[in-house]
C-alpha cells in the first residue's frame, strides 16, 4: 500500500504543473468563450451569453477574412514545403562528403527563431535596400522597385516563402528518415524489372513513403494553422488584413481590443479545426495497409 501511495505522490508535481498550465487555461478559455467579457470595462467575466460569441464569429467579416487567409496560407505552405522537402531528401539521400555536409548545414534555417526570420525577411524584401528585393530587381528588371510587402498578394507570397524556408529543412530530415527505411532491394528490383528513374520514384519510392508523408503533412498543417510570429514581425497582418491569419486575429481580438469572450470562442474554433484535420489524417494513416512494409 505504501508503494502505491508513493507512486501517486511522485506523480503529483507533474500533474499539478499540467493542470495549472494546460488543463486549467483550456477549461477556463472554454467557459469564457460562452461569456461576455470586455477587459477594458471589468476585471472578471460577465454573464453567460450562450453561443453568441460563436454566432458573432460566423457572421463577422474579420473572422471570415482571417479564416480565408489561413486556408490559403496553410495550403500553400504545406504543399510547397512537402514537395520541396521530398525533392531535397531524394537529392540528399546518397552518401558522400558533400551530401553529409549539406545535410548538416540544412538545419540552420530551422534553428532560427520565427520572429527573427520575419524581421530578417522584412529587411531583405525592402524595395530600396533589401538584398532580395534589389537582387531580384537586378536579375529580372521588371521586378525592380516592386513593393513586396505593400501588395496584398505579394505580402502573402513572402509570408509563405519565409515559412517554407523555415520548415523545409526539418521536413527534409523526416523524409530522409523515411527514405532510409525503404528496403533498397525494392528500388533495385524495379530498375531491373525495367523502370526508368522517374517511375522508380513515382511508383515504388513514393507509395512506400505514404506514411511518412502523411505524418509530415499533419505536423506541417498544425504548425501552419498556428502561424503567428512571422505575421507579427514581417507584415503585421497587412497590408490591410491581407495576411491576418487566425492566430493573429485571435491575438488582436484578445489583446488589442480586450474582447476576451470573443477571443476565447475564436481560439476554440481554431482548436476544433485542428482537431478535425488531425483526426482525418490519422484515420487515413491507420486505414492505410500499404504503409506496413513486407
Amino acid at each position: 500500500m505504501q508503494d502505491r501511495f508513493l507512486s501517486y505522490a511522485l506523480l503529483v508535481p507533474a500533474f499539478v504543473i499540467v493542470v495549472a498550465t494546460t488543463i486549467y487555461p483550456l477549461a477556463y478559455s472554454f467557459i469564457t468563450s460562452f461569456r461576455e467579457w470586455d477587459l477594458t470595462r471589468q476585471r472578471t467575466p460577465d454573464d453567460f451569453v450562450g453561443l453568441q460569441n460563436y454566432a458573432h464569429a460566423v457572421a463577422e467579416t474579420g473572422f471570415q477574412n482571417s479564416l480565408w487567409v489561413t486556408v490559403i496560407f496553410v495550403v500553400a505552405s504545406v504543399v510547397l514545403t512537402l514537395v520541396l522537402a521530398m525533392s531535397l531528401a531524394l537529392l540528399l539521400r546518397r552518401r558522400g562528403p558533400l551530401h553529409t555536409f549539406t545535410r548538416i548545414i540544412l538545419i540552420l534555417p530551422f534553428a532560427m527563431s520565427p520572429a527573427l526570420i520575419g524581421v530578417s525577411y522584412r529587411f531583405m524584401f525592402n524595395p530600396e535596400f533589401g538584398v532580395l528585393a534589389v537582387g531580384l530587381g537586378s536579375i529580372f528588371p521588371g521586378l525592380k522597385g516592386t513593393p513586396w510587402l505593400a501588395d496584398p498578394d505579394l505580402a502573402m507570397a513572402v509570408l509563405v516563402v519565409t515559412d517554407v524556408w523555415h520548415w523545409t529543412p526539418y521536413m527534409t530530415f523526416m523524409c530522409l528518415g523515411g527514405l532510409a527505411s525503404i528496403p533498397r532491394e525494392t528500388e533495385e528490383a524495379a530498375r531491373i524489372d525495367g523502370a526508368s528513374g522517374f517511375r522508380v520514384i513515382w511508383e515504388i519510392v513514393l507509395p512506400q513513403m505514404k506514411g511518412v508523408l502523411l505524418v509530415t503533412a499533419i505536423l506541417k498543417t498544425i504548425f501552419a494553422l498556428k502561424m503567428f510570429d512571422q505575421v507579427v514581425t514581417l507584415t503585421g497582418g497587412g497590408p490591410g488584413t491581407s495576411t491576418e491569419t487566425l492566430a493573429y486575429f485571435v491575438f488582436n481580438v484578445g489583446f488589442k481590443w480586450y474582447d476576451m469572450g470573443y477571443a476565447s470562442a475564436l481560439a476554440w474554433i481554431l482548436t476544433l479545426i485542428m482537431m478535425v484535420i488531425s483526426a482525418w489524417y490519422v484515420r487515413m494513416l491507420l486505414s492505410d495497409k500499404n504503409t506496413a512494409t513486407a
Binding site: E185, A189, I192, P207, K210, N290, A294
Partner: peptide, 15 residues
C-alpha cells in the same frame, strides 16, 4: 540489359 533478378530479401513491392 534484359535480365531478371531474385533478391535474398525478395525485394517485393510492399504497396
Amino acid at each position: 540489359r534484359d535480365i531478371a533478378m531474385v533478391f535474398q530479401n525478395y525485394g517485393l513491392y510492399p504497396h
